[in-house]
Each structure stands twice: as structure tokens, then as C-alpha cells.
Nucleic acid binder design. Structure first.
Lengths: 313, 313
DNA sequence: CTGAAAGCGCTTACAG
DNA sequence: CTGAAAGCGCTTACAG
């Protein structure tokens, strides 16, 4: 591979002159400039970015750490797409790496990007998939320790409110419930996500808050735990039916759960939405492919917690 | 940020000694080793990977270029996941970057990774999404020119058969058709993908080959073009029905197309599979969420064209 | 076992 | 406008 020294020799100038021509940071006579460009062309020269970065003490690179095990998530692709677009606009190189399936995988990935001297690092905290999820304190410690900015997505860090971007799950989850109440429902059942997960806890909280604020008494027999997949929604809904729970509306942790619940209701000949109003969450792409689109979905289109939106379809 | 020089001074040894302790490439007395490690610890020292790479003339890094606009693709996440896993096993760092939405975006991304001295680069050619798709000749030229190996996925390069991994779409697409023929069907309709795309052409070819080899005459009125989405499958199927085409089986470019076709058949009160056998392609995750799973899917689980599989469900 | 020195391929004051 | 030299933070022959 040709180096800058090769180019300078071929052009009969100093290395520094080649550097100046290529960077355009100094006045160079047209004549030598052409000499240099010709040599660059002939040698098919490309600067070594590693050497440039080391010398300039900056890489013009943003690091992005994506979670492990998220191949099924519809968010991942969107996240990458948006980050790439913003990086392009800012003229930065986006260096993406995925967390490995090992202890401290997340921290290791962040450090790997810092060790490669990214000017800043973005970390998407996936509360669901990573078995080796980084906890908030560790993330906060990292932010304090690292020589470059670390921004964490999908996780609230009390010590570093300006270094994190998170969803307001409590608020987001209560919107559809408020809507149902507004429609006159009082017997509203809820199929939660896996309650060991914070997101699921927070959304359940939103459901409870909405009922409380409306003066509707909480009925624990109307709440069942699902697993965030359609199969969990199916069995959870069956549980509700078996215990003869009375409800006119059913709110679900997410759309997949709602799909499962829909199947269970259909099997039990309960008409949706005539007998039971069904509502999901996420505006999941899967909704486009349902034969029967009998429920609506609340969704969250923006990574910023201020932008939650709700559409009843 | 502490450098190796800082560590060496703190430990009272030479820079080279610190390097040797950290790399473990030389015998070092236990005493100085401890001195060095203590200094490393106290200074919270981390080696600069850029400097290491420049000095060692290798980065131990594999580059992966993923296509632009593929946020909706189920393959992307899986591709990343598998590459990451393999890189981990090999002890390599996987540097991922996404193609920008601009002219020469693909080539630029590949070069960006080479300029960062990746030891090898993987490029996933996405025939559907990239409007600025790299053509085969350009890719072959790149392979010849680049100082590191470039491997292209999802594209066959005649000049570099050992630098590409591709799907055998013709073969893959004929398998379900062969199956239908074997079941006794002779009137088999086909909803193609967008025929401006190579993948769609090749799969249609597979359909035609299967019929030819079985001695069944091709009937162009049984072939309609879709758009690879369910809406295209829906309208394509309606076209077939409007022209009163007679068929006992319907084969589709992919599963989304088949989902659309299913809706159209249902609307026209045509029972699946009693009156029409329906078959898709991909084993798309969307199948798990259908209320009526009345068709089966051929799928391709492996990136290697030798591993196509078929399951009739 | 350890150190001094050269080198990786660039950039950038410093001179002229 | 251009060159010689120092420096970015490492590794690795070369000595001893």
C-alpha cells in the first residue's frame, strides 16, 4: 500500500506538502498541487485513517453499541438507520458494534469503542434481551470515568440526567387506559409484560395510575402477567376467562401480547371489539399482516420521552 | 488520558517494559511486573488501540457493511448477530457500518473500513433496498484493487466465485413448485416479486424450470407481478381472480405476498387450502402471528446456497 | 531480564 | 509557498 512518503517522493515534494494538498489547509501553488494529485492518482493512494487519527488526536467517529440478541426487534434496524443518518449529516463516521453474549459484554463493547478513540459513544440499553445487562450504577460510574461522553438510551440515570434518553413508560402506558376510561369503560383488564423487567413494571404502573386517578378501584383479578410474546398473551387471556373475570376492555403490555389475547378471545367466541375492546402498544409492524385487525395500538415513535404519541385506529 | 509513558515513569521502568508486561510477549521479573501492573491500575491506564494497530500493522478487526434502508428486514439483525458471534469466537473485533443514502454509498463504506485498516471486509449486497446498489463489475474491480480481502454476500460474482456467498434463488424457488407438482397439481399460479429485481427474476425462473421439467405447459395468464409486500400480493391475486384464471395452487414470491394473496382469496370466499393450496417463501416471522395459518412456507435458513431447506407445514 | 532507539503513517508548529 | 523536524502512542528488533 502506498504511503504518503511514496507519494511525496513520486511528486518530488516533502511529505508535509502532500499532507497540505490533501487536507487543503494551506496555500499551495497550483503547480505542486497538480504534481501531488497526479502522484496520488498514479499510486492509488489512500490516507491511513489510523495514522491520521493518532496524529490529530481525534477520530471524527461516533461509536454505537447495539444490544445482543435483538435480532427479532423491530427497533434495532430503525435505531441504526437514524443514527447513521444523523452521523452522515454531521460528517461523522459511525462505528457500530454489537454486545457479545458474555459477562460484561456491554461494558467491554463500550470500552472497545473508547479504546479506538471514538469521540463519543452511544449505548442502547436493552432491558429485555441482554442477560448480562449493565445496571444503572455501573453506567453512571462509566460516564464519570470515561474520557469521552457516553450517552445511554432507554435507561434513566438519576446521577446523569443529561447523559440518558429514556421512554416515559408510566405515562405512555396510561394513555390508552385513559382513552378507554374516557370511552366509558370501568372494567378494564390488563395483561402485563414479564414483571421481573422494569419496563413491564412501569407500564403496569401506568395502568394503575390511570385507574386510580379516575377513581376506579383496582381489581387484582383483572391483572395477569404475560411474557411480551403472543403465546403469553394467549394463555394470560385464557386465565382471565377461566377465572370468569368480568371486563369490557382489555389492555395489553404490547401488540404481540394483544395478538395472542385476540386469538384466545376468538376461540372463546368473544367478539372484538363488540364485546371486548382490545388495545395493544407499540404499533408493531405485525399489525399490518393480521387478517383481523380488531384492536388498536398505542405507540411510541420517538426515542425522546417527550414525544410519546397515541393513535386509536 | 494516561499513556504508556506515564505508566513507565510511575513504575520507574522503560516504556518497552510496560509494553512487554501488557502483551505478555517476554519474560519479565515478577517484581517489575507487579510494579507495572500497580501503575496501570493506579492510572487507570488503557492502551490506545489506534497506536497499537499502527505500530503492529494489523487491527485484528473485521469490517461488516450492512445495507441502507433495511430497517424493516428481518435478515439484518440475524446477519449482525451471526457475524458478531463468529467474530467473537475468532477473537476479532467486528466493526459494523451502514451504507449511507448517497451515490457510491456502498463503495464509500467499504473504503472507509479499509482505510481504517480492517483486516478483511464483509459486504452484504441488498438487491432490494439500495437505490445506489453496487453492481457486480464494480465489486469485482474493488476485490482486485483492495489491499485486503472483500467478501460479498447475496451476489454472485463470476470473476470471483471464492469472494462471494449467494443464494441459489432458482433452485430455492423451484422446490415448493416441485412439491406442489408432486402433490398432483398442474394448474399452479405464481405471483412474482418486482421483476425489475434480479431476485424476483431468478425465483420466477425457478417456477418456470419446475413446470418445464415436469412437462407442464407454461400459462402466462397464471403469472402476475407483485411487489414483495402483502398489498402487492393482495392486488396480484385479485388480478388472477378477475381474469378468471383457473388454478388449484398458488405459489408466491415470498410470505408477505402470500399473506396478501390469502386475504384476497378469503374475500372471494375461496377456501385455503381446500380449494387452493397456497405457498410462500422465507419462513417469515410474520407467519407466527397470523390468525389463519393456512399456507406453508419454503425457506432458506443459511446464507450458503448449498443449505436451502424446505418445510411444508 | 531490561533499556534506548527506530519505526508505523500521518499532522503541524517552526523556519525560511 | 515549502521543507525539516518533532510528535501522536504504541511495538519490536537490537544491544547488553
Amino acid at each position: 500500500m502506498a504511503t504518503m512518503l511514496d507519494v511525496s517522493r513520486k511528486a518530488g515534494v516533502a511529505k508535509s506538502t502532500v499532507s497540505r494538498v490533501l487536507s487543503g489547509t494551506a496555500k499551495i501553488s497550483e503547480e505542486t498541487k497538480q504534481l501531488v494529485l497526479k502522484a496520488v492518482e498514479e499510486l492509488n493512494y489512500r490516507p491511513n485513517v489510523l495514522a491520521q487519527s493518532l496524529s490529530k488526536q481525534e477520530t471524527n467517529t461516533i461509536g454505537l453499541v447495539i444490544p445482543h440478541g435483538s435480532s427479532t426487534s423491530q427497533y434495532l434496524g430503525l435505531l441504526i438507520e437514524i443514527c447513521q443518518e444523523l452521523a452522515d449529516k454531521a460528517g461523522k463516521f459511525l462505528m457500530i458494534t454489537q454486545v457479545s453474549d458474555e459477562e460484561n459484554g456491554g461494558v467491554n463493547s463500550i470500552r472497545a469503542l473508547v479504546d479506538r478513540r471514538c469521540d463519543a459513544v452511544l449505548y442502547y440499553n436493552n432491558s429485555f434481551f441482554d442477560q448480562y445487562n449493565i445496571n444503572g450504577d455501573t453506567l453512571s460510574d462509566l460516564i464519570d470515568e470515561l474520557p469521552v461522553p457516553l450517552v445511554v438510551m432507554n435507561c434513566y440515570l438519576p446521577r446523569h440526567p443529561n447523559h440518558c434518553v429514556w421512554y416515559d413508560h408510566v405515562y405512555g402506558a396510561r394513555i390508552p387506559v385513559d382513552y378507554l376510561i374516557q370511552q366509558g369503560h370501568t372494567k378494564i383488564a390488563y395483561i402485563a409484560g414479564p414483571l421481573s423487567q422494569r419496563t413491564a413494571q412501569l407500564r403496569l404502573q401506568g395502568y394503575e395510575d390511570a385507574l386510580n386517578d379516575a377513581g376506579i378501584e383496582l381489581d387484582s383479578s383483572l391483572i395477569v402477567e404475560g411474557d411480551r410474546y403472543s403465546s403469553g398473551g394467549f394463555s394470560a387471556c385464557n386465565q382471565l376467562l377461566q377465572r370468569k373475570a368480568e371486563f369490557t376492555a382489555l389492555c395489553c403490555f404490547n401488540d404481540l401480547t394483544a395478538v395472542g389475547a385476540l386469538h384466545a378471545l376468538q376461540e372463546n367466541h368473544i367478539a372484538v371489539p363488540e364485546q371486548v375492546s382490545l388495545i395493544g402498544f407499540d404499533n408493531d409492524a405485525v399489525l399490518d399482516y393480521l387478517t383481523d385487525r380488531d384492536f388498536c395500538s398505542a405507540f411510541c415513535t420517538c426515542l425522546c420521552h417527550a414525544c410519546d404519541e397515541f393513535v386509536a385506529g
